[in-house]
Design a binder for these strands. Sequence first.
DNA 1: GCGACAG
DNA 2: ATCTTGTCGC
Length: 230
Amino acid sequence: MSVVTAASPSCPPGLSIDAATDLQKRLAARVVRTDEFGTVRRVTGVDVAYSTVDDRVTCAAVTLDADTLTVTEIATATGVADFPYIPGLFSFRELPIVLEAFDRLSVRPDLVVCDGQGVAHPRRFGLASHLGVVRDIPTIGCAKTCLTGDFVMPADERGAYAPLIDADEIVGSALRTQPRVKPVFVSTGHRIALATAREWTLRLTPRFRLPETTRAADHAVRVAMKALTG
DNA sequence: GCGACAG
DNA sequence: ATCTTGTCGC
Protein backbone atom coordinates (compact mmCIF):
# COMPACT_ATOMS: atom_id res chain seq x y z
CA MET A 1 0.00 0.00 0.00
CA SER A 2 1.35 3.44 -0.93
CA VAL A 3 1.93 6.06 1.73
CA VAL A 4 1.53 8.87 -0.78
CA THR A 5 -2.13 9.78 -0.88
CA ALA A 6 -2.16 13.10 -2.70
CA ALA A 7 0.08 12.13 -5.61
CA SER A 8 -1.39 12.94 -8.99
CA PRO A 9 -0.14 13.24 -12.57
CA SER A 10 -0.56 16.99 -12.14
CA CYS A 11 1.73 17.14 -9.10
CA PRO A 12 3.86 13.99 -8.96
CA PRO A 13 6.60 13.55 -6.34
CA GLY A 14 10.28 13.54 -7.18
CA LEU A 15 10.21 15.99 -10.07
CA SER A 16 13.37 17.79 -11.16
CA ILE A 17 13.36 21.59 -11.42
CA ASP A 18 13.15 21.40 -15.18
CA ALA A 19 10.38 18.79 -15.18
CA ALA A 20 8.32 20.82 -12.71
CA THR A 21 8.78 23.98 -14.75
CA ASP A 22 7.81 22.12 -17.90
CA LEU A 23 4.72 20.67 -16.25
CA GLN A 24 3.62 24.14 -15.14
CA LYS A 25 3.76 25.42 -18.68
CA ARG A 26 1.49 22.64 -19.86
CA LEU A 27 -0.99 22.84 -16.98
CA ALA A 28 -1.21 26.63 -17.24
CA ALA A 29 -3.11 26.17 -20.49
CA ARG A 30 -5.98 24.62 -18.53
CA VAL A 31 -6.57 27.63 -16.28
CA VAL A 32 -9.95 29.29 -16.77
CA ARG A 33 -9.96 33.02 -16.04
CA THR A 34 -13.70 33.62 -16.26
CA ASP A 35 -16.45 33.01 -13.71
CA GLU A 36 -17.48 29.40 -13.82
CA PHE A 37 -19.49 28.75 -10.69
CA GLY A 38 -22.93 29.25 -9.21
CA THR A 39 -24.08 30.33 -5.77
CA VAL A 40 -21.24 30.42 -3.27
CA ARG A 41 -22.40 29.07 0.07
CA ARG A 42 -19.10 27.85 1.45
CA VAL A 43 -15.64 29.35 1.05
CA THR A 44 -12.51 27.52 2.13
CA GLY A 45 -9.18 28.99 3.14
CA VAL A 46 -5.96 26.96 3.10
CA ASP A 47 -2.67 27.69 4.82
CA VAL A 48 0.53 25.77 5.56
CA ALA A 49 2.90 25.97 8.53
CA TYR A 50 6.41 24.60 8.91
CA SER A 51 7.83 22.84 11.94
CA THR A 52 10.85 24.24 13.71
CA VAL A 53 12.07 20.95 15.12
CA ASP A 54 11.83 18.71 12.07
CA ASP A 55 10.94 18.79 8.38
CA ARG A 56 7.24 18.30 8.82
CA VAL A 57 4.64 20.61 7.35
CA THR A 58 1.00 20.94 8.31
CA CYS A 59 -1.91 22.27 6.29
CA ALA A 60 -5.31 23.41 7.45
CA ALA A 61 -8.31 23.76 5.14
CA VAL A 62 -11.01 25.76 6.90
CA THR A 63 -14.47 26.25 5.47
CA LEU A 64 -16.59 29.28 6.32
CA ASP A 65 -20.24 30.01 5.68
CA ALA A 66 -20.08 32.62 2.91
CA ASP A 67 -22.82 34.76 4.47
CA THR A 68 -21.88 34.76 8.13
CA LEU A 69 -18.15 34.07 7.70
CA THR A 70 -18.33 31.60 10.56
CA VAL A 71 -16.31 28.38 10.53
CA THR A 72 -18.27 25.29 9.51
CA GLU A 73 -15.47 22.75 9.13
CA ILE A 74 -11.75 22.29 9.74
CA ALA A 75 -9.55 19.64 8.13
CA THR A 76 -5.81 19.25 8.67
CA ALA A 77 -2.98 17.08 7.36
CA THR A 78 0.67 16.72 8.28
CA GLY A 79 3.50 15.37 6.16
CA VAL A 80 7.03 16.04 4.95
CA ALA A 81 7.91 18.63 2.32
CA ASP A 82 10.29 16.92 -0.06
CA PHE A 83 10.38 19.58 -2.74
CA PRO A 84 12.57 22.62 -1.85
CA TYR A 85 11.26 26.15 -1.64
CA ILE A 86 11.92 27.75 -4.99
CA PRO A 87 10.05 30.95 -5.89
CA GLY A 88 8.02 30.07 -8.96
CA LEU A 89 7.80 26.37 -8.07
CA PHE A 90 6.12 26.92 -4.75
CA SER A 91 3.11 24.72 -5.47
CA PHE A 92 5.23 21.60 -5.86
CA ARG A 93 6.28 22.08 -2.25
CA GLU A 94 2.90 22.88 -0.70
CA LEU A 95 0.24 21.39 -2.96
CA PRO A 96 0.68 17.76 -1.84
CA ILE A 97 -0.12 18.54 1.79
CA VAL A 98 -2.78 21.05 0.75
CA LEU A 99 -4.53 18.35 -1.26
CA GLU A 100 -4.45 15.96 1.67
CA ALA A 101 -6.14 18.45 3.97
CA PHE A 102 -8.54 19.64 1.29
CA ASP A 103 -9.64 16.11 0.46
CA ARG A 104 -10.49 15.49 4.10
CA LEU A 105 -13.23 18.10 4.05
CA SER A 106 -16.62 16.37 4.17
CA VAL A 107 -18.27 19.11 2.13
CA ARG A 108 -16.81 20.37 -1.12
CA PRO A 109 -16.62 24.19 -0.97
CA ASP A 110 -17.82 26.46 -3.78
CA LEU A 111 -14.71 28.64 -3.71
CA VAL A 112 -11.20 28.37 -2.27
CA VAL A 113 -8.84 31.18 -1.26
CA CYS A 114 -5.14 30.39 -1.24
CA ASP A 115 -2.30 32.10 0.61
CA GLY A 116 -0.21 32.67 -2.50
CA GLN A 117 -0.48 33.60 -6.17
CA GLY A 118 -2.84 32.41 -8.87
CA VAL A 119 -1.89 33.47 -12.41
CA ALA A 120 0.23 36.35 -11.04
CA HIS A 121 3.17 34.06 -11.67
CA PRO A 122 6.07 33.90 -14.17
CA ARG A 123 4.36 31.04 -16.04
CA ARG A 124 0.84 31.99 -14.90
CA PHE A 125 0.52 28.97 -12.64
CA GLY A 126 0.86 29.73 -8.94
CA LEU A 127 -0.42 27.57 -6.06
CA ALA A 128 -4.03 28.75 -6.37
CA SER A 129 -4.14 27.86 -10.06
CA HIS A 130 -2.48 24.51 -9.47
CA LEU A 131 -5.01 23.56 -6.77
CA GLY A 132 -7.89 24.84 -8.90
CA VAL A 133 -6.89 22.85 -11.96
CA VAL A 134 -6.06 19.67 -10.05
CA ARG A 135 -9.41 19.64 -8.22
CA ASP A 136 -11.35 21.53 -10.91
CA ILE A 137 -12.65 24.05 -8.41
CA PRO A 138 -12.89 27.88 -8.38
CA THR A 139 -9.86 29.37 -6.57
CA ILE A 140 -8.47 32.81 -5.77
CA GLY A 141 -4.84 33.65 -5.19
CA CYS A 142 -4.46 36.20 -2.37
CA ALA A 143 -0.80 36.78 -1.50
CA LYS A 144 0.74 39.07 1.08
CA THR A 145 3.60 40.06 -1.20
CA CYS A 146 4.20 40.35 -4.93
CA LEU A 147 6.06 37.63 -6.82
CA THR A 148 6.22 39.09 -10.28
CA GLY A 149 4.95 42.15 -12.14
CA ASP A 150 4.80 45.90 -11.60
CA PHE A 151 2.16 48.06 -10.01
CA VAL A 152 1.58 51.53 -8.63
CA MET A 153 0.46 51.86 -5.03
CA PRO A 154 -3.36 51.95 -4.93
CA ALA A 155 -5.13 54.83 -3.14
CA ASP A 156 -5.23 54.56 0.63
CA GLU A 157 -8.83 53.47 0.97
CA ARG A 158 -10.52 50.11 1.25
CA GLY A 159 -11.37 48.77 -2.18
CA ALA A 160 -8.79 50.81 -4.10
CA TYR A 161 -6.72 48.75 -6.50
CA ALA A 162 -4.10 48.95 -9.22
CA PRO A 163 -3.33 46.49 -12.01
CA LEU A 164 -0.43 44.09 -11.56
CA ILE A 165 1.30 44.00 -14.92
CA ASP A 166 3.80 41.40 -16.08
CA ALA A 167 5.08 41.22 -19.65
CA ASP A 168 2.42 43.69 -20.80
CA GLU A 169 -0.34 41.54 -19.37
CA ILE A 170 -2.63 42.26 -16.41
CA VAL A 171 -2.11 39.24 -14.21
CA GLY A 172 -3.66 40.47 -10.98
CA SER A 173 -4.48 43.41 -8.73
CA ALA A 174 -2.74 45.14 -5.85
CA LEU A 175 -5.84 45.51 -3.68
CA ARG A 176 -6.17 47.63 -0.55
CA THR A 177 -8.46 45.72 1.78
CA GLN A 178 -8.20 48.25 4.62
CA PRO A 179 -6.96 51.83 4.84
CA ARG A 180 -3.43 52.34 6.17
CA VAL A 181 -2.29 48.77 5.51
CA LYS A 182 -0.26 47.37 2.66
CA PRO A 183 -2.26 45.99 -0.27
CA VAL A 184 -2.67 42.26 -0.95
CA PHE A 185 -2.02 40.72 -4.35
CA VAL A 186 -5.13 39.16 -5.83
CA SER A 187 -5.23 37.04 -8.95
CA THR A 188 -7.35 34.45 -10.70
CA GLY A 189 -6.62 30.98 -9.43
CA HIS A 190 -9.06 29.06 -11.59
CA ARG A 191 -12.64 29.48 -12.86
CA ILE A 192 -13.01 33.05 -11.61
CA ALA A 193 -12.49 36.46 -13.26
CA LEU A 194 -10.05 38.93 -11.72
CA ALA A 195 -12.80 41.47 -10.92
CA THR A 196 -14.84 38.75 -9.19
CA ALA A 197 -11.78 37.61 -7.28
CA ARG A 198 -11.36 41.19 -6.00
CA GLU A 199 -15.02 41.37 -5.01
CA TRP A 200 -14.79 38.15 -3.02
CA THR A 201 -11.56 39.24 -1.40
CA LEU A 202 -13.24 42.43 -0.22
CA ARG A 203 -16.25 40.55 0.98
CA LEU A 204 -13.94 38.30 3.01
CA THR A 205 -12.02 41.22 4.56
CA PRO A 206 -14.63 43.18 6.56
CA ARG A 207 -12.14 44.05 9.26
CA PHE A 208 -8.56 42.97 8.66
CA ARG A 209 -5.99 43.05 5.89
CA LEU A 210 -6.22 39.35 5.07
CA PRO A 211 -9.36 37.35 4.19
CA GLU A 212 -11.18 35.70 7.09
CA THR A 213 -10.61 32.41 5.27
CA THR A 214 -6.85 32.88 5.37
CA ARG A 215 -6.95 34.05 8.98
CA ALA A 216 -9.04 31.08 10.05
CA ALA A 217 -6.76 28.65 8.22
CA ASP A 218 -3.67 30.32 9.65
CA HIS A 219 -5.08 30.05 13.15
CA ALA A 220 -6.10 26.41 12.73
CA VAL A 221 -2.75 25.41 11.27
CA ARG A 222 -0.88 27.01 14.16
CA VAL A 223 -3.00 25.15 16.65
CA ALA A 224 -2.45 21.88 14.80
CA MET A 225 1.29 22.50 14.57
CA LYS A 226 1.50 23.38 18.26
CA ALA A 227 -0.15 20.08 19.10
CA LEU A 228 2.58 18.22 17.20
CA THR A 229 5.46 20.22 18.60
CA GLY A 230 4.87 21.85 21.95
C1' DG B 1 26.59 39.25 -14.95
C1' DC B 2 23.14 41.52 -11.56
C1' DG B 3 19.04 41.83 -9.00
C1' DA B 4 14.43 39.70 -7.70
C1' DC B 5 12.35 36.06 -5.58
C1' DA B 6 4.58 33.58 -3.19
C1' DG B 7 5.47 30.58 1.71
C1' DA C 1 7.81 29.85 6.50
C1' DT C 2 10.40 30.49 11.24
C1' DC C 3 13.45 32.78 15.13
C1' DT C 4 11.47 36.83 18.82
C1' DT C 5 9.91 41.63 23.51
C1' DG C 6 7.53 44.88 24.26
C1' DT C 7 4.07 47.84 22.95
C1' DC C 8 0.02 50.10 20.98
C1' DG C 9 -4.99 49.68 20.44
C1' DC C 10 -9.74 47.79 20.52
